[in-house]
């Protein structure tokens, strides 16, 4: 164990942890929203995220930027960020909606048991990432089933330095955008009419119907919202790591799902708390035990925490989540 290393790198590990945690949190929102309304874990959500990373990468390639390009000038950076964001959000949202239409809605119509949904979710996930893996060569986004390189849109440089605590431009972008998105989503769910419809279906679907709420439309809406959040997460991932893979969603999805459970599944703010906490704990662990212990420790902490708080840290349902 390297206590000195942990102490020495503490500030860096914290910011890196928050940065990764912010991405987990955005993806976690998708799990939590769908769970809140359908009591279903959308295991294909990891692919909603992956498709977002690929769409942004593809858009940058079409614009003439690949892993060998260098980006100069704030104007170009902004242009690439916005184009990447638009592509990722659109692609992720369409994927989320397609999964709902193809894998879930037909089962709902037939009153299928929960296990059937679980299997179609896993099936949809495999089909999507295998398809990207198989066709990535033909699409020109990377070799078949290999990592995809991409342009480093934002060269990481230290923006703020307080004492020994350096915060880079990308870290700040990632953390602030994630928090901003969450606040916007929280306001939407708690203040808007459609948000109230989502909460109504989450709390009592039958009574919601008696109020004139169209459940199918609410379900579509939560998939759309989850897709938007995952698309934003995908862009932030690309900016941070300048790399993707056909199966990049697997570990991120698993961690985001864990983050959602850690914070209390069905609870929006819980997704943020769970995501940030998981990111930070993982990074402290890698400082303490070495990088290869990161995932191990993260999940040990998850298991231990759930033993003591089975409903997660903020453990309330989406419907009850109110300040």
């Amino acid at each position: 164990m390297d206590f000195d290393g942990l102490v020495r790198d503490f500030p860096d590990l914290t910011t890196t942890g928050l940065e990764q945690g912010a991405i987990y949190a955005l993806v976690a929102l998708g799990y939590t929203l769908v769970y809140g309304v359908l009591r279903l874990i959308n295991f294909a959500h990891s692919e909603v995220f992956m498709i977002g990373t690929v769409a942004a990468l593809g858009t940058w390639q079409v614009m003439g930027y690949n892993q060998n390009s260098s980006v100069n000038g704030i104007g170009i950076i902004l242009l690439l960020l916005l184009a990447g964001l638009a592509a990722a959000v659109v692609a992720s949202t369409l994927t989320a909606v397609a999964v709902e239409r193809v894998a879930y809605r037909p089962l709902r119509r037939r009153n299928a048991p929960p296990l059937a949904f679980l299997i179609t979710a896993i099936g949809a996930s495999f089909v999507l990432f295998e398809a990207v893996g198989l066709f990535s060569d033909d699409l020109g986004i990377g070799g078949q089933r290999t990592p995809f390189g991409m342009v480093d849109v934002m060269q990481s440089e230290t923006l703020v330095s307080i004492g020994g605590w350096d915060i880079t431009n990308t870290q700040l972008l990632v953390i602030l955008s994630a928090i901003g998105m969450l606040v916007a989503l929280d306001l939407f769910i708690n203040r808007s009419r459609l948000g109230r419809g989502i909460r109504a279906v989450a709390q009592d679907p039958d009574t919601a119907a008696l109020m004139g709420v169209n459940k199918d439309r609410v379900i579509l809406l939560v998939f759309v919202l989850g897709g938007i959040m995952a698309g934003a997460a995908a862009l932030l991932w690309n900016v941070t790591y300048a790399f993707s893979r056909f199966d990049v969603g697997f570990l991120i999805g698993l961690k985001a799902f864990s983050a959602a459970v850690l914070g209390g599944i069905g609870n929006l703010r819980g997704a943020l708390v769970g995501g940030l906490l998981l990111g930070v704990v993982e990074n402290y662990a890698s400082g303490l035990f070495g990088g290869e212990w990161k995932d191990f420790t993260g999940f040990v902490v998850l298991i231990v925490l759930l033993m003591f708080r089975p409903t997660g840290l903020l453990g309330e349902s989406l419907g009850r989540a109110r300040a």
């Binding site: 109230r196 419809g197 709390q203 009574t207 109020m211």
Partner: peptide
């Protein structure tokens, strides 16, 4: 409905507004 079906996490005001949802 039977059992009242009050939305527990919504305020009285919000519950009433749900009635006017559409």
């Amino acid at each position: 409905p039977e059992g009242r079906g009050v939305f527990p996490g919504m305020t009285v005001q919000e519950n009433l507004e749900m009635g006017a949802y559409s």
